[in-house]
């Protein structure tokens, strides 16, 4: 019997939860705020779905209902990607060691 590809994706999902569990516990508590902003930025990889949706329109009709939702999602995700990574970078620049 053939294995449903869903099971493979589900395996990736479960294993990633475990990876996330161990990786996040090793994050130092002083960096918990950057952790939140960077997880925010990376979860905006949902933009790949938005791009597929936006480009699904035919050549004659660029804006149909489904592609409009795609464009809007691109806009929201882009705010998050740029905002999330840049604000994380800005915070991380501030963490400095004692001057010797």
């Amino acid at each position: 019997m053939e294995i449903d590809p869903f099971i493979f994706r589900f395996s990736i999902f479960i294993l990633s939860i475990f990876v996330g569990y161990y990786v996040v516990w090793s994050v130092t508590p002083s960096l918990h705020t950057p952790l939140m902003s960077v997880t925010n930025a990376i979860s905006s990889v949902i933009i790949v779905g938005a791009i597929i949706a936006a480009l699904a329109g035919s050549a004659e009709k660029v804006f149909e209902t489904s592609s409009i939702f795609g464009y809007l999602a691109i806009l929201l995700a882009a705010v998050n990607i740029f905002g999330g990574f840049l604000v994380t970078q800005r915070m991380l620049q501030m963490y400095k060691k004692k001057k010797k």
Binding site: P5, R9, I12, F13, I14, S16, I17, V19, G20, Y21, V23, V24, L35, M36, T39, N40, I42, S43, V45, I46, V48, G49, I52
Partner: peptide, 17 residues
């Protein structure tokens, strides 16, 4: 979307939160 990057990221962010 059957997209690995999104599945991995979702799981990471979900467990992080």
């Amino acid at each position: 979307l059957e997209n690995t990057a999104l599945i991995i990221t979702g799981a990471l962010v979900g467990s992080s939160g």
